[in-house]
Every structure is written in structure tokens, then in C-alpha cells.
């Protein structure tokens, strides 16, 4: 396998026409590592992935793929070395899983050769690895949320790129399938040396499966590094407004996050933590 082309973002500013969503982001990924981006809803994680894959042009700064500015590369060239799975993509009615996954081969095919034994094999492998092979001829719109998510991941895998960007690949997945996806990501890293960037909301899984964590808040990166160094109770409170206990897992020593209950039985909620408890009774009162 050729040397992994690192992806580098330099002082990125980007938005959707109403001010900047990303306010100067620097990031380097590469070297066959798993980098996980965490941060609260709306902080700009998906926007960052879009800029890294040129789906959104930054208003300032630049992104380098193997040292070349993205804006100088052809779309197909980018697609051959970088696959990105957007958050919540939608397939047209009636498109089957196999048809979807086969789309992942497009960047490698000239227009007059849209099928070959090799493409067929890679497509089958991608569906097997994501456990959707049995669903190959089922329409994507008739799958469960988790099956659908895995079909889309299969499409990105079939692209066989050295860089893989996944925006919340575990939403809609049950715990076992979420772990399956992250194990698959780990295998991809270990066996093929791919570099993977993932956006995750589950801090426990993020801590467990990442080589590096990137913590974002309001359009900026506030911390970056190995999970054990980055995660702290203060950081969780500052970035997420989340009061949580952080301790090393007695089995493998990885950081584990346990949120502190703010209400109810056994809740160790101290008063005056700066964030009022979510008062359910208040809301039900207004309904009646």
C-alpha cells in the first residue's frame, strides 16, 4: 500500500453565507490513525468534514491532500483517495443495497467500463464486511435505520480510498452494531493502514476506539490528542456542559465517562451547578 496521503487543514474559516461556522481550524490527520471529532450539536463537526472533502469551499485557509491544495485537484482524483460518508444521506426510492454499494466504484471506472470482475469482488467484500450481503437486492428505503447506515458505509468502503471520513456512522445503530462498525474501522486501520476520521457522539466509544480525539466547541478546536490525555471532567463540563465522572476502565485502563444524574433517585446532583436540571414536571404542567 502506498504511503498514506495526509490531510491537512490550515486556518480554515467556512460557513453558509451568514457568518463563519468554522473560526480558524487547523488539523492534520494521516499516518494510518483513527481521529475522532467530538463536540456538541451544531459546533461545526459536519461542516469541518465537508471542508476537508471539498463539499464546502472555505472562505479562508486551505486544505491540502498529500500536499496539494484541494481546489487544484479534480473531483475524481479526490474521490480516489478520499471517501466521505455525509451525515444522514438519502437514497432514492427503489435503489437496492447492491446498486448503492456499486456506486462506490465509480471514481475508479472510466465511463465505458462500469463493470468488471474486480469491481464485483470489491463490492461483495464491502457488503460482507458491513454485514449487508443478505440485503443486497433489498431496496435501501425499506431497510431499518441501522441496516441503511451499514449499506452506506459499505459504499464508502467500496471506494477503497486511503482516507475515510465518516460523519456519525453509528447513529441509528444498536450498541452491538455500533461496536461492529468501530471494530471494522479498527480493522481497516490495522490491515490496510487507512487513515480514518470519524465524528462520534458516544464519548465512551470515542475514547475506546480513537488514536486521537479532536474536541470542538463553537467552530474551534479546543483540545486535541490521545483520549487519555485529552479527556477530563473539566473539559466535559466546559465543552458539553456535562457533569460526569471520568475514570479508567478496570479492565483495559481506557478512560470511561459516566454522566452524573441531576434529578431523581440516587442523583448526586448538587445544587447550583450552573445548569438548571431539565424540569420535566414543569413542561407537563404547561400541556394540561
Amino acid at each position: 500500500m502506498a504511503e498514506t496521503p495526509p490531510l491537512q487543514a490550515i486556518d480554515i474559516r467556512a460557513g453558509y453565507g451568514h457568518g463563519d461556522v468554522l473560526k480558524g481550524v487547523d488539523l492534520r490527520v494521516g499516518g494510518g490513525k483513527i481521529t475522532t471529532i467530538i463536540g456538541p450539536n451544531g459546533c461545526g463537526k459536519s461542516t469541518l468534514l465537508k471542508v476537508l472533502s471539498r463539499l464546502l469551499r472555505p472562505t479562508a485557509g486551505s486544505v491540502l491532500l498529500s500536499g496539494s491544495p484541494l481546489e487544484q485537484l479534480r473531483t475524481r482524483e479526490i474521490a480516489r483517495s478520499l471517501a466521505v460518508l455525509p451525515q444522514l444521506p438519502v437514497a432514492p426510492d427503489g435503489m437496492t443495497v447492491a446498486e448503492l454499494v456499486r456506486r462506490g466504484r465509480q471514481p475508479h471506472q472510466p465511463w465505458y467500463r462500469q463493470w468488471s470482475e474486480q469491481d464485483e469482488r470489491i463490492t461483495a467484500d464491502a457488503m460482507r464486511d458491513t454485514q449487508v450481503a443478505e440485503l443486497a437486492d433489498t431496496a435501501v428505503d425499506r431497510l431499518s435505520g441501522g441496516q441503511r447506515q451499514r449499506a452506506w458505509i459499505a459504499m464508502s468502503l467500496a471506494q477503497q480510498t486511503e482516507l475515510l471520513l465518516l460523519d456519525e456512522p453509528t447513529t441509528h445503530l444498536d450498541m452491538a452494531h455500533a461496536v461492529d462498525v468501530l471494530e471494522l474501522v479498527t480493522t481497516l486501520r490495522d490491515v490496510t493502514g487507512r487513515t480514518i476520521v470519524v465524528v462520534l457522539h458516544d464519548l465512551g466509544l470515542a475514547a475506546r476506539y480513537s488514536d486521537d480525539l479532536v474536541v470542538m466547541k463553537a467552530g474551534s478546536i479546543v483540545a486535541q490528542g490521545p483520549p487519555a490525555e485529552v479527556l477530563s471532567e473539566e473539559l466535559l463540563l466546559e465543552v458539553f456542559g456535562l457533569r460526569a465522572h471520568l475514570f479508567d476502565d478496570p479492565f483495559d485502563g481506557l478512560p470511561t465517562v459516566i454522566p452524573v444524574r441531576r434529578t431523581g433517585i440516587g442523583g448526586a446532583a448538587p445544587a447550583g451547578d450552573g445548569r438548571g436540571p431539565l424540569d420535566v414536571r414543569d413542561r407537563s404542567a404547561t400541556w394540561s
Binding site: 465537508k50 472533502s53 471539498r54 463539499l55 473531483t75 475524481r76 479526490i78 474521490a79 480516489r80 471517501a83 466521505v84 460518508l85 455525509p86 444521506p89 438519502v90 437514497a91 432514492p92 435503489m95 448503492l100 456506486r103 462506490g104 465509480q106 471514481p107 464508502s156 471506494q159
Partner: peptide, 16 residues
């Protein structure tokens, strides 16, 4: 055909 998946997905598989 790729555009039926949306502009973003189309671009990720190399369609302009």
C-alpha cells in the same frame, strides 16, 4: 444516476 443520491454524495464518488 449519482446525482439522485444528492449533490454531496455525487461529489464524493467523483461526479462534478
Amino acid at each position: 444516476g449519482a446525482l439522485r443520491l444528492g449533490r454531496d454524495v455525487a461529489a464524493t464518488v467523483g461526479t462534478v
